[in-house]
Amino acid sequence: MSLIHSLLEGLDASDRERTVGLINRSIAADLASVADGAGPTRQVDVGTRSRARRTRSTSGSGARSGR
């Protein structure tokens, strides 16, 4: 059973037709956007955050002394 069929299980005929229509229109819109050069849309805006950087302590508290 495909994912679509499992999602439609239990729906009456009119709800099934409406749902399949929504899915088809969404897919067609995505394909048209890609054909026009659009990239995939992101679910969330991640912004331009940079990663936290670990800095080495110069106080010597974390350094081994070699003794």
Rank of each mutant, 00 (worst) to 15 (best):
A28E: 12
T55L: 10
P40S: 06
I27Q: 15
L11G: 06
A35M: 09
A29Q: 12
R53K: 14
G21I: 07
L7M: 13
A35G: 11
S14K: 05
T19Q: 09
R51S: 14
G66L: 02
S33H: 09
R56D: 12
S26M: 13
V34A: 04
A32I: 02
L7H: 12
S59R: 01
G37T: 00
G39F: 01
D45I: 06
A52Y: 10
A28D: 10
R51D: 15
A13G: 04
D12G: 05
R67H: 03
T19G: 03
E17C: 00
T41L: 15
I23C: 12
S2A: 04
R54K: 11
A29I: 09
V34R: 04
D36Q: 05
A13R: 06
G21Q: 14
R67C: 00
G37I: 01
A38Y: 12
T41H: 13
G62W: 09
A28I: 05
S6D: 03
G60E: 04
S59G: 02
S57K: 14
I4S: 07
L22C: 11
S57A: 14
T19R: 10
Q43S: 04
E9P: 00
R64M: 11
S26R: 14
A38I: 07
S65I: 01
L7S: 09
E9K: 09
A29F: 07
G47D: 08
Q43N: 02
L8Q: 06
S59Q: 00
L8H: 06
H5G: 11
E17R: 08
G37M: 00
S50E: 15
D15S: 09
L3K: 10
T41N: 12
D15T: 04
R25P: 00
S2M: 01
P40H: 06
R25Y: 05
S2P: 02
A29M: 07
G39Q: 03
M1D: 04
R49A: 15
R25N: 08
T55R: 13
E9T: 09
D30M: 07
R56N: 11
M1E: 02
A28K: 08
T55C: 03
L22K: 15
R18E: 05
D36R: 01
T58H: 01
E9A: 12
